[in-house]
Simulated scan of single mutants.
Amino acid sequence: MTDPVRLLIVDDHPVVRDGLRGMFAGDPGFEVVGEAADGAEALTMAARHHPDVVLMDLRMPGMDGVTAIGRLVAADSPAKVLVLTTYDTDADVLPAIEAGATGYLLKDAPRDELVRAVRAAARGESVLAPSVAGRLMGRLRTPRQPAEEPLSQRELEVLTLVARGSSNREAAARLFISEATVKTHLLHVYAKLGVNDRAAAVAVAYDRGLLTPGGR
């Protein structure tokens, strides 16, 4: 008899986690080994329970899903990450896939489709929601436009730390500069990338190739 797929559920909404746990707990082909409410907790739980598949939300307080995916890959975790989220914009899809996600589904996916996707992810197969596959194909056909104004070395250093989950204060300490200087650098980054906040800056930077999982 084949061993059940060991599953870690990561979502900041308890109701969603409860629903997913109930869905998979009733199937002998799966074993829910843990739950996490954010990316940092997901990393801890993955190291402790060694899941085969991590069912990962993206937009969560604290460490987001993309950062957690990148860190799992950097740590050589054998777990496959299947993104399960509400969002299918370029700013969500592309960074998640580039960070190392095996698949990407939306939360309105039918139960049978989700079950098949988790099994496929456990085998290392990529599963993409139709709208996500369409976006990726469209991006492959459309050459990326370079940034109008390049980021400075210091701005890239600040953005790299932000992408890894550092606060302004932590980034300042790492770079031996003031917190006010970090904020100034971020404002310049926002202006150059045409965004208004940290999350969007990181997403656009991944999209343009300014940042890469595990480095810059």
Rank of each mutant, 00 (worst) to 15 (best):
A199H: 07
F176K: 15
D18S: 15
P4L: 10
L186H: 14
L151T: 06
K107C: 02
L20V: 11
L186S: 14
A203G: 10
L187W: 08
P78D: 03
T212C: 13
M56S: 03
A147S: 01
L114P: 01
M56L: 03
L161R: 07
D11Q: 06
A180M: 12
T2I: 07
L94C: 05
P110W: 11
A75L: 10
A117R: 02
H49C: 14
A201F: 01
G124L: 08
G34D: 13
P14S: 00
T89W: 10
T102I: 08
F24D: 01
D3E: 09
D112L: 10
A191H: 11
T44Q: 13
T86R: 08
R123I: 10
H188I: 00
P130A: 10
V132K: 11
V81M: 01
T160Q: 14
P14D: 02
V5C: 00
G124P: 14
Y206P: 07
D92R: 01
R164M: 07
A37R: 15
R17D: 01
L106I: 10
R135E: 03
V118C: 05
H185Y: 15
A171Q: 05
R119E: 11
R116V: 08
T86Y: 12
T2D: 09
D197E: 10
A129P: 10
E157S: 09
A47W: 12
L175P: 03
Q153D: 15
L211A: 05
A75M: 10
L106A: 00
I9M: 05
S166T: 07
G39C: 12
T85C: 01
R154N: 01
E113P: 05
S77A: 12
L105R: 02
D207V: 08
V5T: 09
L55I: 03
Y87I: 05
A191F: 04
F24E: 01
D18W: 09
V66Y: 03
L106Y: 00
V189T: 14
R6I: 12
A147R: 01
R154K: 13
D92Y: 08
L43R: 14
A129I: 12
P213K: 08
G22K: 07
Y206D: 02
L193M: 06
R154M: 12
M1I: 11
T44E: 12
A99D: 13
A133Q: 14
G214D: 06
D112Y: 13
G214L: 12
K80Y: 02
R116P: 05
G215Y: 09
R169M: 15
G62K: 02
T89G: 11
R48T: 04
I177K: 00
V53P: 03
K183V: 04
I177T: 07
A199T: 13
E157P: 12
V132S: 03
A117P: 06
D108P: 08
K183P: 00
V32Q: 03
H49A: 11
E155N: 11
M56K: 05
D64P: 07
L161H: 08
A99L: 14
A47D: 08
A36K: 03
L7P: 01
I177Q: 01
H185A: 14
E35D: 10
R59H: 15
T142I: 11
R216A: 12
L156S: 05
A75S: 09
E113Q: 13
L159A: 11
K183H: 10
Y206G: 06
I69R: 04
R144K: 13
A205C: 07
E98K: 15
M1E: 12
K80R: 15
R208E: 07
G100Y: 06
L7T: 02
P146H: 00
G62N: 06
L186M: 15
V204H: 05
